[in-house]
Amino acid sequence: MSLDHFRMAEEPFYTPVAGEIALFEAAFHEHVPLMLKGPTGCGKTRFVEHMAWRLRRPLVTIACHEDMTAADLVGRYLLEAEGTVWRDGPLTEAVRHGAICYLDEIVEARQDTTVVIHPLTDERRVLPLDKRNELVAAHPDFFLVISYNPGYQSAVKDLKESTKQRFAAIDFGYAEPAREAAIVAQEAGIAVEVAEKLVRIAIASRNLGGHGLEEGASTRTLIRTGKLVARGIALADACDMAIVAPLTDDRDTRGALRSVVSACL
């Protein structure tokens, strides 16, 4: 089976913050699995897409969730008219055919699920399918990337130490204000001055991280807001709709955020 439909057709827009492109390429060629750390919406997923395009590899993205089982990753037997047939899971497909496999928000998955990636991340580079009694050797171009948001997981939702230590990590943060404003302006198609106001709101909201908010408004949130503004929605309304209302339901925090928006405009 071909993974061609997992290939990027067009270049995803990405503005590098530092040397992360070179770091990723080095890790890719040396088969060092990679962990992308950073807050929500700072561009981790976009970066992986950009790198998949740049390296011309298909990208298999798996959004992890609490009910995900190992079978959802590696595959399972299905029932057909003539009996059971094995169907590879997305991870197995990526391993067999040499794709970049991106496990988004890996801490959301239960820890006993994530251990199935362990044999892929060390020198062996194999994926055992115990139900099928098969050992799948990884394609030379197979590359494993996980994303990990250190901001909001509790002690319960943390990576196992044995999982953490198998990865090299690149830290992501929000771009510095001027660059973030430029990104927002470019992506949303709005004037830089408007984008600067949005960034000011976002910086203020990030001060509330851990004090009423899990995390402040992300770059992605700002781009969404900007797109609404580009559509002709008034700036204050767009902020309310795309920043204040989604971020929190707490009355006091909402009140504070509304005041922040009105102070920054």
């Binding site: 909201s205 509330l208 004090h211 925090t253 504070a256 955020l257 922040v260």
Partner: peptide, 13 residues
């Protein structure tokens, strides 16, 4: 109080 505490933190840190 709670709202203003958060507002001050957001704007002035």
């Amino acid at each position: 109080e709670e709202r203003l505490r958060r507002l001050t933190r957001a704007l002035f840190g």
